[in-house]
């Protein structure tokens, strides 16, 4: 039996919230949390969550033999990366000097200590934790019904720097603009936690479970040139 939504379980973090949130927006869908490459390969769409340290995440992905099925899913079906599941799609993370999956061109870096002050000179804490405004950098089916500037819940110390600006789907400020959502072809990935972002997050997840990337305008290659 194939499933509608496979949530990849590689032992990193609270997956129950992700599955419950998706079940909430798609009550009739079959949603499974799984580490089985066969189930992931057969699923209609894939969610790739994750919390913790980049090096641990990569180690667990390989220890469970999930690298290839993640790469394949990211090539071929609606694919949603969340938090660490977004970061490790890129080539390299500064966290633990970790080579990542390299599905998207770009790197992951830490909020630089010297930059963490607001305009009034107040210290900004790291992790960046709490509800911040998300600005939509491109129209996308996953933003449908979500207001520009809507707040989502974040908790992270590192952020992605895509090599192709055309892949940037959303950004936030802390205190400088950083990329918090990327979109290319069938991939959409977010730094914030839609499963913890109340109505706005549920709206995004609801958009994901009905998203048909083939029918949208977002198909573009990794060079990003076509998307700009």
């Amino acid at each position: 039996m194939s499933v509608d939504v496979a949530i990849i379980d590689y032992g990193m973090g609270n997956l129950r919230s992700v599955s419950k949130a998706i079940e909430h927006v798609a009550p009739s869908a079959s949603v499974v949390v799984t580490a089985d490459p066969v189930v992931i390969a057969a699923a209609g769409r894939v969610v790739f969550p994750g919390q913790g340290a980049a090096r641990d995440c990569m180690r667990e992905i390989d220890a469970r033999g999930l690298r290839q099925v993640i790469v394949d899913a990211a090539r071929g079906k609606p694919f949603l990366g969340i938090c660490m599941g977004m970061q490790v799609l890129f080539e390299h993370s500064e966290e633990g000097d970790t080579p990542c999956l390299g599905i998207l061109p770009g790197t992951v870096q830490r909020f630089p200590h010297e930059a963490m002050h607001d305009e009034q000179g107040n210290k900004l804490k790291v992790p960046h934790m709490g509800w911040n405004n998300v600005h939509q950098a491109m129209p996308h089916p996953l933003w449908a019904g979500i207001e520009e500037g809507e707040r989502f819940y974040f908790v992270h110390s590192y952020f992605v720097q895509p090599a192709s600006p055309g892949a940037i789907a959303g950004f936030s400020h802390y205190p400088f603009p950083f990329t918090c959502a990327v979109a290319t072809g069938n991939i959409f990935a977010v730094q914030f936690h839609p499963e913890k972002s109340q109505d706005a997050g549920l709206a995004l997840l609801g958009n994901f479970v009905t998203w048909n990337p083939g029918a949208s305008h977002t198909a573009c290659d990794m060079s990003g040139a076509a998307c700009a």
Binding site: G130, N132, N133, R151, F154, F171, H173, Y174, P177
Partner: peptide
């Protein structure tokens, strides 16, 4: 994408209750 315009509007992490 309109970074500048968006920047001037909201750019502060909310304090949590």
């Amino acid at each position: 994408m309109n970074w500048r315009a968006a920047c001037s509007e909201y750019k502060v992490l909310a304090k949590r209750i």
